[in-house]
Nucleic acid binder design. Sequence first.
DNA 1: CGAGGGGTTGACGCCGATCAAAGCTGGTGG
DNA 2: CCACCAGCTTTGATCGGCGTCAACCCCTCG
Lengths: 243, 243
Amino acid sequence: MGKQIEKSLCTNAEWLGRSHCDRCHIRQLMFFSELPETAFSHLLKPIDHYIYPPGTVLYEAKSQKQFIYSIRRGMVKLVHEAMDGTCRIVRLLGPGAAIGLELLDGESGYHHTAIAVDQVDLCKIPVATTRQLQQDYATLCRHVGEQLQEQLDLADQWIVALSTGTAKQRVAQLLLIMDEFFADENQSFILLNREDMAAMIGIAVETVSRMIATFKRQKILKRYKENRYICNVTALQEITRHG
Amino acid sequence: MGKQIEKSLCTNAEWLGRSHCDRCHIRQLMFFSELPETAFSHLLKPIDHYIYPPGTVLYEAKSQKQFIYSIRRGMVKLVHEAMDGTCRIVRLLGPGAAIGLELLDGESGYHHTAIAVDQVDLCKIPVATTRQLQQDYATLCRHVGEQLQEQLDLADQWIVALSTGTAKQRVAQLLLIMDEFFADENQSFILLNREDMAAMIGIAVETVSRMIATFKRQKILKRYKENRYICNVTALQEITRHG
DNA sequence: CGAGGGGTTGACGCCGATCAAAGCTGGTGG
DNA sequence: CCACCAGCTTTGATCGGCGTCAACCCCTCG
């Protein structure tokens, strides 16, 4: 877990240039959807667009940058790091989600460390810009509220999944969440490494490995390609209910 | 857990009359703080003020009422009820917090069941009223955002506490949270019943009981009066770190 | 080819869930 | 005022699940 952070000290982010929010093909998903095109013409600070490789630390907890990010593609994990060095993943976010919103409430630093799980494609938005747009367009305020509400719902789902049942049931829960939120058009999703899964559901790495291996043997979890897998949803749901 | 819900079928809520937000002595805490006094003069629907006894169900998950609530006094638990009847407490909220905000995002029903833990004193605000005020006063939007952000932070703290350490460590965590957020001027806080604590940290009732009993014997937890207790914060912090 | 990192599997011991029973407390009714 | 009861808490005994330690496999990379 700590390793991944070090890795990213050398990031080779690819700057894709200024974002063209007014011509963004996935705007309805994104943070500035519903704003009129004219809104972007006289911004004080630019909105940039980047691609980062897996493992990149987008920001660190308590660091004092002044950007929020809107995820266009890929998966980001929000990590809580305890003083003793142990890490917990508190949330997993995908396309359409915005991260770093805590800065809008006047917080001086980020509340988590954000790390790219796979290749991530995102827009980097200065806080000042967001505030400026918030003043002019009430609809953006509404949008921020929705984002927060969604993340709150996610967190709640997490809490329930976490504190419920045996290790096997929790791993099943996790796979169902991966399937629900991160599956592509083929129903396949990235299977996180054992360490990340352990950090999410709060059990030992070896236990996760055992459960995943069991699911694979039982064909409940099937390799689709590379590290993408497809799961048998009904079987997993059954497991979450009874051992 | 199910019992408490039944209990509340007979509630004797006391209606304290219309809220006078413009003269509210704790307005800076409350939902409508910073709105000008004139804002309340021409509301379509009234804001009422109630007191409910412990155990009252304020609203049930998925029910279709159209109110959000601002807590003036007392403690409210937000409960997730699984299809198999098991309950998990996902959040504990006190004075100044607003609940039911998910309705503002156009959700058709509440996401949790809200139950009064002790005697609760709250303002009942029609969604229509909130929307109306949101349009006129951008500052209210900001306030909603802050509320959500706070609850998100709480949920994250919960996740970390939940998935970390032994049963003893988790109970210690829980007591520290109670002390931090719900202690009165004498540092005393309500000691929840074992069932509620178990529902929060995801362990068995008997285990909670054992831990609490141990803490009492070790004088880490001392009775202040009735069901209010005072805890030795440093001792508990020590426990959260090492067994 | 060797080294290293991630995944899998086995063995063992302990924590905590579960079942069971016995205090404790407050409330009710005789 | 006491007896009784119901619900909550505490405590004990037992057993299974999971954390821990360790070995081994597989793959990638230098």
